[in-house]
Simulated assay, not measured.
Amino acid sequence: MKSRLLWIRTLLVAAIVFVVLSQLLRPSLVGQWYWASALEKLEAGENDQAIELGQKAVDWSGDSAAMRMRMAELLYRVERNEEALALLEPAEESEEEDVTLLPMKNFLLSRMGEHERALALADDLIAAADEGKFHRHRALNNRAYATALALSDDAELPPEALEQAQKDIEEAIGIYGADASYLDTRGYVKHFAGDNEGAVGDLNVAIEIYQSLINQVEEEEDVWGTMKEMRLKQAQGMIGVLYHHRGEALKALGREEDAKRDFEQADKMGYSRQKGHW
Rank of each mutant, 00 (worst) to 15 (best):
M1N: 05
M1R: 10
K2G: 13
S3G: 02
R4W: 12
T10Q: 15
I16Y: 15
I16M: 12
V20L: 14
L25W: 15
R26M: 09
R26K: 12
Q32G: 05
W33Q: 09
E43V: 12
E43N: 14
A44N: 10
G45D: 01
E52G: 09
G54L: 04
G54C: 07
A57P: 05
A57W: 06
A57V: 01
W60M: 08
W60C: 03
D63Q: 14
A66V: 07
R68A: 00
R70P: 01
R70Q: 08
M71K: 13
L75M: 12
V78I: 15
N81A: 03
E82Y: 09
A84V: 00
L88M: 12
E89Q: 13
E89H: 12
P90R: 09
E92F: 14
E95D: 12
E96I: 14
T100I: 14
L101F: 04
P103C: 06
M104I: 07
K105R: 14
N106F: 07
L109M: 09
G113Q: 04
G113W: 07
E114Q: 13
H115E: 02
R117G: 04
R117M: 07
L121G: 05
A122Q: 03
D123E: 10
D123C: 03
D124T: 05
L125M: 04
L125Q: 01
I126A: 02
A127M: 09
A127I: 09
D130P: 08
E131M: 11
K133Q: 11
R136I: 02
H137C: 10
T147W: 04
T147Q: 02
A148I: 00
A148H: 03
S152G: 06
A155L: 10
A155G: 07
A155W: 10
L157S: 06
P158A: 14
P159R: 11
Q164L: 14
Q164G: 06
Q164D: 12
D168V: 08
I169G: 00
E170S: 13
E171S: 11
I173D: 01
Y176W: 14
A178Y: 15
A178N: 12
D179C: 11
D184F: 08
T185Y: 05
R186A: 02
R186S: 02
G187N: 03
Y188T: 08
K190D: 00
K190A: 01
F192D: 00
F192T: 00
A193I: 00
G194V: 03
N196Y: 02
V205N: 05
A206S: 09
Q211D: 08
S212V: 03
L213H: 07
L213I: 10
I214S: 06
Q216H: 15
E218V: 06
E220A: 06
E220D: 06
E221K: 13
D222L: 10
W224G: 02
T226G: 05
E229T: 15
G240A: 09
H245E: 00
H245G: 02
R246P: 04
G247W: 03
K251I: 01
G254H: 12
E256A: 15
E256Q: 15
E256R: 15
E257C: 04
D258W: 11
F263H: 04
Q265F: 01
K268Q: 07
G270V: 06
Q274S: 11
W278S: 10
